[in-house]
Amino acid sequence: MTAANDTPRPDIFDRRLRARQRDRMVPRFADHDFLYRMMLDELIDRLGDVQRDLPEALVIGCPDGSARTSLRAMGKRVACIDPGFLTAKGAGGVQADEDALPFADNSFDLILACGTLDSVNDLPGALILMRRILRPDGLMLAAFSGAGSLPRLKSALLGAEGDRPGQHVHPQIDVRAAGDLLSRTGFAMPVADGETLSIRYGDIARLMHDLRFMGAGNALANRPPPLTRAVLADAAEHFAKAADPDGRTAEQMAIVYLSGWKPDPSQTAPARRGSATVSLAEALKGKDQAGQ
């Protein structure tokens, strides 16, 4: 008999649906890639502050080949994984979930995870695996949408559905919790920070269209039934009421950025927990100086 505490926890996200959503976005992703592009550009900029080779890299989340191209331009050898089969294939990678990475320990010097960690079933497990497959003194950089995203959409749907709203947007993690997870999963010199992107929409349909073709639809295992036309129409009215005088409604996406190193004896001892007072750029710069 299996003990109660050994029973596998049910998935929060439907893995097959998540993969299908990733694949469905492929033909039209280039027209809806602004959020991914912003996150990737920021990660590449931050990596540029690290004056070390980190030659073997893994990209997690590859809706196109841009991350691989950017890293190869920096002289790195790059492998790619994605939860979707077609997305992975298109980038010359393999299909895999972040909490079931198919790589041996100590395989990579760098992991760059862009745009998928907000919908992984076991985020602590995924971070532990990422740390394990890094070589000692290897770097993990990640970006994903976090808590505080899509407030206008959530408010419009809540107003349209009344007393029995469904969960149409999955739970999201905030910066503080994400930083705590980095520490708990064994990363050295963990840093978490964030920024908020404002996008202005003429109507709710365009927003939902963007979410669909950037692979950000609802993939919850226990998701509610599809929205009826009446609810969608009511939600559109609520969304329009929040518009600025020019008729466009400002929606927000809160982006979480993470950075952590696999522990190595050469690293500077960490400060006591909760005492961080430096920016990510300063932390990376300090890491470079310590490694010289």
Rank of each mutant, 00 (worst) to 15 (best):
S107W: 02
R46M: 03
P27N: 03
K89Q: 15
T228V: 13
T116D: 07
M38R: 15
C114E: 12
G138S: 06
S279W: 06
R24L: 14
K154P: 00
A104C: 07
E98R: 00
I128R: 15
L141H: 09
L280E: 03
D99I: 11
G194S: 13
E282W: 00
H170G: 13
A250N: 11
R72I: 00
L157E: 07
A100Y: 05
V175H: 05
Q172C: 13
G93A: 03
Q95P: 02
A243R: 06
I199N: 05
R37K: 15
A3R: 13
A143S: 15
P102Q: 01
D180F: 09
Q172M: 15
V256G: 09
R273M: 04
E98W: 00
R273Y: 08
A242P: 03
P171H: 12
G148D: 06
R28Q: 10
F239H: 02
H238L: 04
V50D: 00
M189I: 05
A160T: 07
A242I: 05
E56Q: 05
R131L: 09
T228N: 12
L110C: 09
L134F: 04
R68G: 02
L220D: 12
Y201P: 08
M140H: 09
G125Y: 11
G215M: 05
A205R: 07
G217Q: 02
S275T: 15
S266A: 14
L110V: 09
